[in-house]
Protein backbone atom coordinates (compact mmCIF):
# COMPACT_ATOMS: atom_id res chain seq x y z
CA UNK A 1 0.00 0.00 0.00
CA UNK A 2 2.81 2.45 0.75
CA UNK A 3 3.88 2.27 -2.86
CA UNK A 4 0.52 3.49 -4.05
CA UNK A 5 0.48 6.25 -1.46
CA UNK A 6 3.76 7.63 -2.72
CA UNK A 7 2.66 7.51 -6.34
CA UNK A 8 -0.52 9.42 -5.78
CA UNK A 9 1.09 11.90 -3.45
CA UNK A 10 3.58 12.73 -6.14
CA UNK A 11 0.81 12.96 -8.69
CA UNK A 12 -1.59 15.07 -6.65
CA UNK A 13 0.02 18.55 -6.70
CA UNK A 14 -0.70 18.84 -10.39
CA UNK A 15 -4.34 18.09 -9.73
CA UNK A 16 -4.84 20.18 -6.63
CA UNK A 17 -5.05 23.84 -7.34
CA UNK A 18 -2.76 26.13 -5.39
CA UNK A 19 -4.39 28.17 -2.73
CA UNK A 20 -5.25 31.71 -3.65
CA UNK A 21 -5.94 32.71 -0.08
CA UNK A 22 -2.61 31.43 1.14
CA UNK A 23 -0.92 33.58 -1.46
CA UNK A 24 -2.97 36.64 -0.58
CA UNK A 25 -2.04 36.32 3.05
CA UNK A 26 1.65 36.76 2.42
CA UNK A 27 2.07 38.44 -0.92
CA UNK A 28 5.60 39.54 -0.19
CA UNK A 29 6.85 36.12 0.86
CA UNK A 30 8.86 34.49 -1.87
CA UNK A 31 8.44 30.80 -2.32
CA UNK A 32 11.33 28.41 -1.94
CA UNK A 33 13.44 27.41 -4.90
CA UNK A 34 11.11 24.67 -6.07
CA UNK A 35 7.96 26.80 -6.14
CA UNK A 36 6.25 27.56 -9.38
CA UNK A 37 3.89 30.23 -10.53
CA UNK A 38 0.51 29.48 -12.07
CA UNK A 39 -2.37 31.85 -12.62
CA UNK A 40 -0.68 34.36 -10.40
CA UNK A 41 -0.70 32.04 -7.41
CA UNK A 42 2.34 30.41 -5.95
CA UNK A 43 2.82 27.22 -4.06
CA UNK A 44 4.66 27.59 -0.83
CA UNK A 45 6.55 24.67 0.51
CA UNK A 46 4.39 24.79 3.61
CA UNK A 47 1.23 24.21 1.60
CA UNK A 48 2.43 20.78 0.60
CA UNK A 49 1.60 19.85 4.17
CA UNK A 50 -2.05 20.04 3.21
CA UNK A 51 -1.50 17.67 0.34
CA UNK A 52 0.22 15.19 2.64
CA UNK A 53 -2.63 15.40 5.12
CA UNK A 54 -5.31 14.75 2.54
CA UNK A 55 -3.36 12.19 0.53
CA UNK A 56 -4.22 8.96 2.42
CA UNK A 57 -7.96 9.60 2.22
CA UNK A 58 -7.69 10.67 -1.42
CA UNK A 59 -5.85 7.45 -2.22
CA UNK A 60 -8.51 5.51 -0.35
CA UNK A 61 -11.34 7.08 -2.32
CA UNK A 62 -9.52 6.66 -5.62
CA UNK A 63 -8.75 2.99 -5.03
CA UNK A 64 -11.77 1.72 -3.11
CA UNK A 65 -14.57 4.04 -4.23
CA UNK A 66 -13.70 5.41 -7.67
CA UNK A 67 -11.72 2.35 -8.73
CA UNK A 68 -14.73 0.03 -8.41
CA UNK A 69 -16.88 2.59 -10.22
CA UNK A 70 -14.50 2.35 -13.16
CA UNK A 71 -14.44 -1.40 -12.63
CA UNK A 72 -18.09 -1.51 -13.61
CA UNK A 73 -16.87 -1.91 -17.21
CA UNK A 74 -16.94 -5.58 -16.25
CA UNK A 75 -20.68 -5.29 -16.79
CA UNK A 76 -20.00 -5.03 -20.53
CA UNK A 77 -17.47 -7.86 -20.59
CA UNK A 78 -17.47 -11.60 -20.72
CA UNK A 79 -15.25 -11.48 -17.68
CA UNK A 80 -12.95 -14.27 -16.67
CA UNK A 81 -10.39 -14.27 -13.91
CA UNK A 82 -7.43 -15.21 -16.12
CA UNK A 83 -7.76 -12.35 -18.57
CA UNK A 84 -8.76 -9.85 -15.88
CA UNK A 85 -10.47 -6.51 -16.33
CA UNK A 86 -8.15 -5.40 -19.10
CA UNK A 87 -8.05 -8.59 -21.15
CA UNK A 88 -11.57 -10.04 -21.03
CA UNK A 89 -13.55 -9.90 -24.28
CA UNK A 90 -16.40 -7.42 -24.68
CA UNK A 91 -19.90 -8.76 -24.44
CA UNK A 92 -21.99 -5.76 -25.33
CA UNK A 93 -25.26 -5.69 -23.42
CA UNK A 94 -25.74 -9.43 -23.10
CA UNK A 95 -25.11 -9.33 -19.34
CA UNK A 96 -27.98 -6.92 -18.91
CA UNK A 97 -30.19 -9.01 -21.13
CA UNK A 98 -29.58 -12.03 -18.96
CA UNK A 99 -30.75 -10.31 -15.80
CA UNK A 100 -33.72 -8.54 -17.31
CA UNK A 101 -35.02 -11.64 -19.00
CA UNK A 102 -34.28 -14.07 -16.18
CA UNK A 103 -37.78 -13.68 -14.76
CA UNK A 104 -36.31 -12.98 -11.33
CA UNK A 105 -35.92 -9.28 -11.87
CA UNK A 106 -39.43 -8.06 -11.13
CA UNK A 107 -39.62 -9.89 -7.85
CA UNK A 108 -36.21 -8.74 -6.71
CA UNK A 109 -36.70 -5.10 -7.67
CA UNK A 110 -40.11 -5.06 -6.03
CA UNK A 111 -38.74 -6.64 -2.84
CA UNK A 112 -35.92 -4.12 -2.71
CA UNK A 113 -38.19 -1.12 -3.09
CA UNK A 114 -40.95 -2.39 -0.82
CA UNK A 115 -38.62 -3.49 1.97
CA UNK A 116 -36.56 -0.31 1.91
CA UNK A 117 -39.64 1.90 1.80
CA UNK A 118 -41.00 0.01 4.81
CA UNK A 119 -37.69 0.26 6.66
CA UNK A 120 -37.25 3.96 5.95
CA UNK A 121 -40.72 5.09 6.94
CA UNK A 122 -40.93 2.82 9.97
CA UNK A 123 -37.51 3.66 11.40
CA UNK A 124 -37.85 7.41 10.87
CA UNK A 125 -41.39 7.35 12.23
CA UNK A 126 -40.30 5.37 15.28
CA UNK A 127 -37.33 7.70 15.77
CA UNK A 128 -39.53 10.83 15.77
CA UNK A 129 -42.11 9.24 18.04
CA UNK A 130 -39.48 7.99 20.44
CA UNK A 131 -37.77 11.39 20.53
CA UNK A 132 -41.10 13.10 21.30
CA UNK A 133 -41.74 10.61 24.09
CA UNK A 134 -38.24 10.80 25.56
CA UNK A 135 -38.59 14.57 25.50
CA UNK A 136 -41.58 14.30 27.85
CA UNK A 137 -39.63 12.43 30.50
CA UNK A 138 -38.59 14.80 33.26
CA UNK A 139 -36.36 12.78 35.57
CA UNK A 140 -32.84 13.29 34.22
CA UNK A 141 -31.61 9.90 35.36
CA UNK A 142 -34.56 7.98 33.95
CA UNK A 143 -34.39 9.89 30.69
CA UNK A 144 -30.68 9.33 30.29
CA UNK A 145 -31.07 5.67 31.18
CA UNK A 146 -33.82 5.17 28.63
CA UNK A 147 -31.89 7.01 25.96
CA UNK A 148 -28.89 4.76 26.57
CA UNK A 149 -31.10 1.68 26.43
CA UNK A 150 -32.83 2.50 23.14
CA UNK A 151 -29.51 3.42 21.49
CA UNK A 152 -27.75 0.13 22.32
CA UNK A 153 -29.18 -1.98 19.46
CA UNK A 154 -27.44 0.30 16.96
CA UNK A 155 -24.08 -1.12 18.09
CA UNK A 156 -24.95 -4.76 17.57
CA UNK A 157 -23.84 -6.56 14.43
CA UNK A 158 -26.38 -8.13 12.05
CA UNK A 159 -25.11 -11.58 13.00
CA UNK A 160 -25.93 -11.00 16.65
CA UNK A 161 -29.32 -9.55 15.69
CA UNK A 162 -29.97 -12.71 13.72
CA UNK A 163 -29.25 -14.82 16.82
CA UNK A 164 -31.53 -12.60 18.91
CA UNK A 165 -34.28 -13.05 16.35
CA UNK A 166 -33.90 -16.81 16.41
CA UNK A 167 -34.45 -16.74 20.15
CA UNK A 168 -37.81 -15.11 19.55
CA UNK A 169 -38.97 -16.97 16.47
CA UNK A 170 -37.33 -20.39 16.62
CA UNK A 171 -36.14 -20.97 20.16
CA UNK A 172 -33.42 -23.45 20.92
CA UNK A 173 -32.94 -25.94 18.12
CA UNK A 174 -36.06 -24.64 16.36
CA UNK A 175 -38.45 -25.92 19.00
CA UNK A 176 -40.69 -22.92 19.55
CA UNK A 177 -39.41 -19.56 20.58
CA UNK A 178 -40.95 -16.88 22.73
CA UNK A 179 -43.35 -15.56 20.12
CA UNK A 180 -44.88 -18.99 19.65
CA UNK A 181 -45.09 -19.48 23.42
CA UNK A 182 -47.04 -16.24 23.56
CA UNK A 183 -49.31 -17.33 20.70
CA UNK A 184 -49.94 -20.65 22.47
CA UNK A 185 -50.79 -18.81 25.67
CA UNK A 186 -53.65 -17.16 23.76
CA UNK A 187 -54.66 -20.56 22.37
CA UNK A 188 -53.33 -19.71 18.94
CA UNK A 189 -51.37 -22.26 16.91
CA UNK A 190 -47.60 -22.00 16.60
CA UNK A 191 -46.15 -20.63 13.39
CA UNK A 192 -43.11 -22.12 11.77
CA UNK A 193 -41.66 -18.67 11.05
CA UNK A 194 -38.61 -19.68 9.08
CA UNK A 195 -40.72 -21.52 6.51
CA UNK A 196 -43.43 -18.86 6.09
CA UNK A 197 -42.39 -16.12 3.65
CA UNK A 198 -45.58 -14.05 4.16
CA UNK A 199 -44.84 -12.22 7.43
CA UNK A 200 -41.15 -11.58 6.73
CA UNK A 201 -41.39 -8.03 5.39
CA UNK A 202 -43.02 -7.10 8.69
CA UNK A 203 -40.61 -9.12 10.79
CA UNK A 204 -37.65 -7.44 9.10
CA UNK A 205 -39.29 -4.04 9.56
CA UNK A 206 -39.71 -4.68 13.27
CA UNK A 207 -36.05 -5.71 13.46
CA UNK A 208 -35.04 -2.50 11.67
CA UNK A 209 -37.12 -0.40 14.06
CA UNK A 210 -35.51 -2.19 16.99
CA UNK A 211 -32.07 -1.57 15.50
CA UNK A 212 -32.43 2.05 14.32
CA UNK A 213 -35.36 3.57 16.25
CA UNK A 214 -33.09 4.64 19.11
CA UNK A 215 -30.39 5.89 16.75
CA UNK A 216 -32.80 8.20 14.95
CA UNK A 217 -34.34 9.31 18.23
CA UNK A 218 -30.91 10.56 19.33
CA UNK A 219 -30.66 12.67 16.17
CA UNK A 220 -34.20 14.03 16.55
CA UNK A 221 -33.68 14.71 20.25
CA UNK A 222 -30.64 16.81 19.35
CA UNK A 223 -32.84 18.79 16.98
CA UNK A 224 -35.51 19.18 19.68
CA UNK A 225 -32.94 20.53 22.13
CA UNK A 226 -32.07 23.30 19.71
CA UNK A 227 -35.66 24.59 19.62
CA UNK A 228 -35.77 27.85 21.64
CA UNK A 229 -37.58 27.64 24.97
CA UNK A 230 -39.69 30.76 24.25
CA UNK A 231 -41.72 28.90 21.65
CA UNK A 232 -42.95 26.54 24.34
CA UNK A 233 -43.49 29.35 26.83
CA UNK A 234 -45.73 31.00 24.27
CA UNK A 235 -47.53 27.70 23.90
CA UNK A 236 -48.04 27.39 27.65
CA UNK A 237 -49.46 30.92 27.87
CA UNK A 238 -51.92 30.06 25.13
CA UNK A 239 -52.99 27.06 27.20
CA UNK A 240 -51.64 24.34 24.93
CA UNK A 241 -51.44 20.83 26.37
CA UNK A 242 -48.18 18.85 26.19
CA UNK A 243 -49.66 16.75 23.41
CA UNK A 244 -50.60 19.84 21.39
CA UNK A 245 -47.14 21.29 21.83
CA UNK A 246 -45.51 18.07 20.69
CA UNK A 247 -47.84 17.80 17.72
CA UNK A 248 -48.05 21.44 16.62
CA UNK A 249 -44.71 22.91 17.70
CA UNK A 250 -42.06 20.20 17.99
CA UNK A 251 -43.12 18.02 15.11
CA UNK A 252 -43.18 20.78 12.45
CA UNK A 253 -39.81 22.03 13.66
CA UNK A 254 -38.34 18.54 13.17
CA UNK A 255 -39.19 18.62 9.47
CA UNK A 256 -35.80 19.85 8.18
CA UNK A 257 -33.92 17.14 10.09
CA UNK A 258 -36.42 14.55 8.92
CA UNK A 259 -36.07 15.76 5.34
CA UNK A 260 -32.29 15.32 5.38
CA UNK A 261 -32.55 11.82 6.84
CA UNK A 262 -35.29 10.91 4.39
CA UNK A 263 -33.20 12.17 1.51
CA UNK A 264 -30.21 10.08 2.58
CA UNK A 265 -32.54 7.08 2.93
CA UNK A 266 -34.14 7.60 -0.48
CA UNK A 267 -30.68 7.71 -1.99
CA UNK A 268 -30.04 4.25 -0.55
CA UNK A 269 -33.48 2.86 -1.37
CA UNK A 270 -32.16 0.83 -4.26
CA UNK A 271 -29.53 -0.81 -2.10
CA UNK A 272 -30.87 -3.57 0.07
CA UNK A 273 -29.65 -3.84 3.61
CA UNK A 274 -27.41 -6.72 2.66
CA UNK A 275 -25.80 -7.24 6.05
CA UNK A 276 -29.01 -7.59 7.98
CA UNK A 277 -31.04 -9.51 5.41
CA UNK A 278 -28.27 -11.95 4.57
CA UNK A 279 -27.42 -12.50 8.23
CA UNK A 280 -31.05 -13.28 9.03
CA UNK A 281 -32.28 -15.08 5.93
CA UNK A 282 -29.00 -16.48 4.67
CA UNK A 283 -29.48 -19.21 2.11
CA UNK A 284 -32.97 -20.11 3.33
CA UNK A 285 -34.58 -20.26 -0.11
CA UNK A 286 -38.11 -20.65 1.25
CA UNK A 287 -38.06 -17.01 2.31
CA UNK A 288 -36.60 -15.58 -0.91
CA UNK A 289 -39.99 -14.75 -2.42
CA UNK A 290 -40.45 -11.89 0.04
CA UNK A 291 -36.92 -11.15 1.25
CA UNK A 292 -34.57 -11.49 -1.70
CA UNK A 293 -33.24 -8.05 -2.65
CA UNK A 294 -30.76 -6.90 -5.29
CA UNK A 295 -27.77 -7.14 -2.98
CA UNK A 296 -28.50 -10.62 -1.69
CA UNK A 297 -29.25 -11.82 -5.20
CA UNK A 298 -25.97 -10.41 -6.49
CA UNK A 299 -24.04 -11.97 -3.65
CA UNK A 300 -25.54 -15.39 -4.25
CA UNK A 301 -25.09 -15.17 -7.99
CA UNK A 302 -21.44 -14.31 -7.51
CA UNK A 303 -20.87 -16.96 -4.92
CA UNK A 304 -22.80 -19.79 -6.55
CA UNK A 305 -22.19 -19.23 -10.24
CA UNK A 306 -19.12 -16.97 -10.17
CA UNK A 307 -20.91 -14.93 -12.80
CA UNK A 308 -19.02 -11.65 -12.73
CA UNK A 309 -20.55 -10.09 -15.83
CA UNK A 310 -24.19 -10.39 -14.89
CA UNK A 311 -23.67 -9.41 -11.28
CA UNK A 312 -21.68 -6.35 -12.32
CA UNK A 313 -24.44 -5.46 -14.76
CA UNK A 314 -26.96 -5.58 -11.95
CA UNK A 315 -24.62 -3.50 -9.79
CA UNK A 316 -24.31 -0.87 -12.51
CA UNK A 317 -28.05 -0.78 -13.03
CA UNK A 318 -28.51 -0.43 -9.28
CA UNK A 319 -26.00 2.41 -9.01
CA UNK A 320 -27.43 4.35 -11.93
CA UNK A 321 -31.03 4.09 -10.77
CA UNK A 322 -29.93 4.87 -7.21
CA UNK A 323 -28.03 7.93 -8.43
CA UNK A 324 -31.02 9.18 -10.41
CA UNK A 325 -33.22 8.74 -7.34
CA UNK A 326 -30.82 10.77 -5.21
CA UNK A 327 -30.69 13.54 -7.78
CA UNK A 328 -34.48 13.67 -7.92
CA UNK A 329 -34.67 13.69 -4.13
CA UNK A 330 -32.04 16.45 -3.97
CA UNK A 331 -33.97 18.48 -6.52
CA UNK A 332 -37.21 18.10 -4.61
CA UNK A 333 -35.52 19.02 -1.39
CA UNK A 334 -33.73 22.06 -2.82
CA UNK A 335 -37.06 23.33 -4.06
CA UNK A 336 -38.67 23.15 -0.65
CA UNK A 337 -35.89 24.18 1.66
CA UNK A 338 -32.85 26.15 0.70
CA UNK A 339 -31.36 25.82 4.18
CA UNK A 340 -30.80 22.15 4.73
CA UNK A 341 -29.03 20.88 1.63
CA UNK A 342 -26.63 18.17 2.60
CA UNK A 343 -23.45 19.66 1.24
Amino acid sequence: MTGTTEDTRAATPGKLKPTARAARRTPQERGPVGSRRRRGVQWRRKDYGLVILAAPAIVFFLVFAYGPMAGLVVAFQDFNINDGVFGSPWAGLSNFEFFFTSGQMNRILLNTLVLNALFLTATLGAGVLLALMLNEIRGTLLRRGLQSAVFIPYFVSPIVISIFLQAFLAGVGGRGGIVNDALNAFALPSVSWYTEPGPWPWILTIVKVWQLGGYFSVIFLAAITSIPEEVYEAGTIDGATRAQMAWRITLPLLKPTGAVLLLLGVGRIFYGDFGLIYAIVGDNGILFSTTDVIDTYVFRALRTYGDFGTTAAIGLFQSVVGFVLVMIALGVQRRYSKESSVL
Binding site: I58, V74, L343
Partner: peptide
Protein backbone atom coordinates in the same frame (compact mmCIF):
# COMPACT_ATOMS: atom_id res chain seq x y z
CA UNK B 1 -9.44 22.74 -3.20
CA UNK B 2 -11.77 22.38 -0.21
CA UNK B 3 -14.96 22.43 -2.21
CA UNK B 4 -13.51 20.00 -4.71
CA UNK B 5 -12.42 17.58 -2.01
CA UNK B 6 -15.82 17.85 -0.34
CA UNK B 7 -17.55 16.84 -3.57
CA UNK B 8 -14.90 14.16 -4.11
CA UNK B 9 -15.73 12.65 -0.70
CA UNK B 10 -19.45 13.09 -1.11
CA UNK B 11 -19.89 11.26 -4.40
CA UNK B 12 -19.06 7.81 -2.91
CA UNK B 13 -22.01 8.33 -0.55
CA UNK B 14 -24.29 8.47 -3.59
CA UNK B 15 -22.74 6.15 -6.09
CA UNK B 16 -20.86 2.93 -5.58
CA UNK B 17 -19.28 0.40 -7.87
CA UNK B 18 -20.86 -2.42 -5.96
CA UNK B 19 -19.74 -5.85 -4.98
CA UNK B 20 -18.19 -7.28 -8.13
CA UNK B 21 -15.57 -4.64 -8.94
CA UNK B 22 -14.60 -4.49 -5.26
CA UNK B 23 -14.18 -8.24 -5.22
CA UNK B 24 -12.00 -8.20 -8.33
CA UNK B 25 -10.00 -5.28 -6.99
Amino acid sequence: LSRGLAVFSYIPMLFSGGLVPLYIL
